[in-house]
């Protein structure tokens, strides 16, 4: 039961990753691409959590936490760049 659910979830999250990737490649504006990147990293967190459940290993938690932090900092830095034309003033 659980393994079927995890398989379905893997398929759905992979679909989500592909849709975000499509938006990342297509644009059309810079904020769209940043939003797509933001979504991509959140989807990656979902994929890592699923992998942790699938392999019964809590090792993947640290990776998920690191991606959550670095992804947020990256999004903020990119937005800041768009707003000011500079990251560190």
């Amino acid at each position: 039961m659980l393994s079927i659910a995890v398989s379905i979830a893997f398929a759905l999250v992979s679909g989500a990753l592909l849709l975000s990737l499509w938006r990342l490649l297509r644009g059309p504006d810079k904020p769209d691409r940043i939003l797509a990147l933001d979504t991509l990293y959140i989807n990656t967190i979902a994929l890592l959590v699923l992998l942790g459940i699938h392999l019964s290993s809590s090792l993947y938690f640290e990776a998920a936490l690191l991606i959550a932090m670095m992804g947020f900092v990256g999004t903020v830095a990119l937005c800041k760049y768009l707003l000011r034309g500079d990251i560190i003033e």
């Binding site: 039961m1 659980l2 079927i4 659910a5 995890v6 379905i8 979830a9 893997f10 759905l12 999250v13 679909g15 989500a16 990753l17 849709l19 975000s20 938006r23 939003l35 797509a36 979504t39 959140i42 989807n43 979902a46 699923l50 459940i53």
Partner: peptide, 18 residues
């Protein structure tokens, strides 16, 4: 199982909206 499928479904719908 329900939590996992519902969670993945919402993740998918979010990207679908995108």
């Amino acid at each position: 199982s329900v939590l996992i499928v519902v969670g993945a479904l919402f993740t998918f719908i979010g990207s679908l909206g995108l």
